[in-house]
Design a protein around this nucleic acid. Structure first.
Lengths: 192, 192
DNA sequence: CTCATTTCTTAACTTAAGTGAACGGGTTAT
DNA sequence: ATAACCCGTTCACTTAAGTTAAGAAATGAG
C-alpha cells in the first residue's frame, strides 16, 4: 500500500529512506466503508485525501437533490476548496466503494513542508498539474454536448461508467438521470 | 503599473526592495493592441501572462468555429496548460482589448524561484488558490442551466457582459450566440 | 463617407433535455 | 415472505437549445 503512495510522490520528487520513514511515521492510512461520509456541508475541515484504492465523490445538495461533481479514484488527490480557503465546506464527500485512503491535514503538511522543503516543490508541481488538468476538463465540458461528454467519458474513464451509479454519473455529466438513460438508449440504437 | 503587480504579489508574500528591483530589471511589461494573437494552436511556448490592464481570452477552433472558454482581466494570471505539460498548445490566446501585460517565461521563473525561494512559496499558494477557484467555477457550471449561468455571470463579473462580444460570451456559457440572444430576450420579458 | 465585414437579433423549424409519473428488478429490513 | 425502498428505464408532455436563414445595426478600413 505504501508503495502506491511512494510511486505517486516519485513522479514529482525523489525521496531518501529517512524521508520515507518520516512519512510512514505520520500514520496516514485509513480504510473506509462504502457509503461513509468523509465531509459534510457546513463542516470545517483541514483534511486532504489521496485514494490508494476505491472511489470517492464530491456532491452538493441543491433543492434537496444530490449533484455529484467529481469522482476520485486510485492515485487521485483531493484537497477540498474549503480547506484552501479556510471556509466551511459547501459540499459533501462520500465513499462510492470500500476505500483505502491516505488522509493528511494541513497542520501536518505545513510541518512536513518546513522540515523537508522538497515537499513544497512537490506541492507546487502537483497543484500546477492539477490546475492544468482541471482547465482542460472544464474546457472540454463547455465545448461539448451531453452526448459528446458521455462518449468522452467512455474513452477516458471507462471504469467509472461501470463502478458508479447512473444517477451520480448523470449529474457529473450535467444532466438528469432520465436524460442519461435516454441518451444511452439513443446511442445503442445508432450503433445498430 | 508596477504597483499593480506588487500589490498582487503582496497577497502571497512580502518583498524587500532588492527583490522588487530584481523583478523590475527583468523588463516584464508589454503593451499589446486589441486583436493581437499572443498564442496560436500548435505553437510551443513557455510564456505566462499577468493582466495589468485590459482583457485577454483563450479560445479553441473546433469545426471551424471559435469556442471561447475563458477571459482574463485586471489582476488575473494565466499559464496555458501547454506550458505546464510542455506540449504544443491546443488553443489560442488573443487580446479582447488593448492591454498592458506582464509576460514572463518559464526559464526566468525557474531562475527567480531558485534565487528567491520565497517565490516558490508564492507559486504554490497561487496555484492552490486558482485550482480551488477553478473547481468552484466548474462545479457551478455543471450544476446550473444556461440561464442560471448567465445570471450568475451578471452577478460575479458584470463588467464582462459589457466589454466582451456576445458571441464570445455565449461559448463561455456553453451555448450558441443565438441562444444567448434569445435567453436575454426571455429574461427581459420576465422582468416586465 | 462609403463599402464591406462583423455582430446581434429575430424567426421558423428540429432536436434534445427537463418534468412528472409509472413500472419492474433488485436489495434490505422487518 | 412480504413490504418498503432505491434504482434504472420508459413514456408523454413541456421547455429550451441547436440549426438554418435573413436582415438590421454597429464597426472598421480604405
Amino acid at each position: 500500500m505504501k508503495n502506491i503512495l511512494f510511486d505517486f510522490i516519485s513522479k514529482y520528487i525523489s525521496l531518501t529512506e529517512d524521508e520515507k520513514n518520516a512519512l510512514i511515521s505520520l500514520d496516514l492510512f485509513r480504510t473506509v466503508k462504502k457509503g461513509t461520509v468523509l465531509l459534510k456541508e457546513g463542516q470545517h475541515s483541514n483534511e486532504s485525501y489521496f485514494v490508494l484504492k476505491g472511489c470517492i465523490r464530491t456532491y452538493y445538495i441543491i433543492d434537496g437533490e444530490e449533484k455529484t461533481t467529481a469522482f476520485y479514484t486510485e492515485m487521485d488527490a483531493l484537497t477540498p476548496h474549503s480547506v484552501i480557503n479556510k471556509t466551511p465546506s459547501d459540499f459533501f464527500i462520500s465513499c462510492v466503494e470500500d476505500c483505502i485512503l491516505s488522509v493528511s491535514n494541513s497542520d501536518m503538511e505545513a510541518e512536513v513542508n518546513s522540515k523537508f522543503p522538497k515537499f513544497e516543490l512537490m506541492c507546487r508541481k502537483l497543484s500546477e498539474e492539477l490546475l492544468a488538468k482541471e482547465r482542460i476538463d472544464f474546457d472540454e465540458f463547455k465545448t461539448s454536448s451531453p452526448e459528446e461528454r458521455y462518449l468522452n467519458l467512455l474513452q477516458k474513464r471507462p471504469d467509472l461508467v461501470q463502478r458508479v451509479p447512473q444517477h451520480q454519473l448523470a449529474s457529473y455529466l450535467g444532466i438528469k438521470p432520465q436524460s442519461l438513460s435516454r441518451l444511452r438508449a439513443r446511442l445503442l440504437e445508432k450503433k445498430s
